[in-house]
Design a protein around this nucleic acid. Structure first.
Lengths: 174, 174
DNA sequence: CCCATACCGTTCGCGAACGAACGACCCGCG
DNA sequence: CGCGGGTCGTTCGTTCGCGAACGGTATGGG
């Protein structure tokens, strides 16, 4: 609804300026980047306690169900990449979800190394009920920005994301 | 430097549209919010491996040093809030940092319940050397956006943040 | 002066997170 | 045929993260 920008610094930001304002730092970049972390953590907590807690699902477990819902059965390594976690962590998450009967593992007959992961019917029901509630919360939070602002926000974050991915390969020789 | 917006969807976003495009979801809000998570995780990893890894500091440990640098000696509960973690987690982080000689704990003489946390000289040296490198990376990443975009990004994220904080208290009175 | 109340940091139990190291498995080259 | 090198998932050890519960410490009312 509301569209007026709010450029007042957060209390934490003001404190940082008071303490470090004299140092030669790029504060403009600092506000942009650090607020990505601040808002990410805040939104995640909000979702965990308001949407995920009733089903006793952790954030990562929820993302795992979501990924399997969108992609269908997939190899474990691709699952890890899609969720955004390491392979060892993916093993633990899959074990947890398997223990709750939401996910199933089976070996690939073609390649004995591979493990294929998929939703069980119970897991499918869970995510199909949960995700609309999740998206409704996203929508409610985003409604404090205009549609144009939401698009601009997504676009700028994509630019940042692509910058990181390129920079991530650099530094070394690769 | 570059200022052209990039509205192409990420591969993951395109896949989501293919799989769920027919459902009545708010995709605009979804792109805005989900890209906050994506970019946050990507930047965090980038910082961990390119800036923090040489000092064998975790992200949270770094934020802890940074908070103590900005605020000076503080009560443990305020430390937890400023870092953005629970009190039990703060206990663990302080123990780890104390074991590395970067942080010191002492009891408050006035109130026997309180614990006061502060940087040791070694911890102070660490953060004073580390943070400029961290900020230089922030600056490099943000340079893919114009100054106006950086300001707009920070402003929109603050709006989001304030929306979450109000919504978090909701169901209540204030 | 005492006790109910409230608050603080810690401990406990668990799930999640990573890098390093490991066994199982595939494949291509000799 | 075999075996060296690469890839897969898992295990191990450590740190982070939370909610619940606990002991120690203040404080205000009786």
């Amino acid at each position: 609804m509301s569209s007026a920008p709010d450029d007042r610094l957060l209390p934490a930001e003001q404190k940082i300026l008071d303490a470090l304002g004299d140092l030669p730092l790029d504060f403009r970049a600092m506000w942009a980047i650090s607020n990505v972390f601040r808002s990410s953590a805040a939104i995640r907590r909000h979702m965990e306690s308001n949407v995920l807690a009733p089903d006793r699902l952790s954030w990562t477990a929820f993302v795992g169900l979501w990924v399997l819902w969108v992609w269908g059965e997939m190899e474990a390594r691709d699952f890890a990449v899609a969720v955004g976690i390491s392979r060892p962590t993916a093993t633990g998450v899959m074990t947890t979800l398997e223990g709750r009967g939401l996910v199933a593992r089976r070996k690939d007959a073609r390649d004995g190394r591979m493990v294929l992961v998929s939703l069980t019917p119970s897991g499918r029901t869970t995510i199909e009920h949960l995700f609309p509630r999740f998206n409704a919360e996203e929508s409610a939070l985003a409604s404090h920005l205009t549609e144009e602002q939401q698009d601009a926000l997504a676009s700028m974050l994509r630019s940042l994301l692509r910058a990181v991915e390129r920079s991530g390969r650099a530094g070394g020789f690769s």
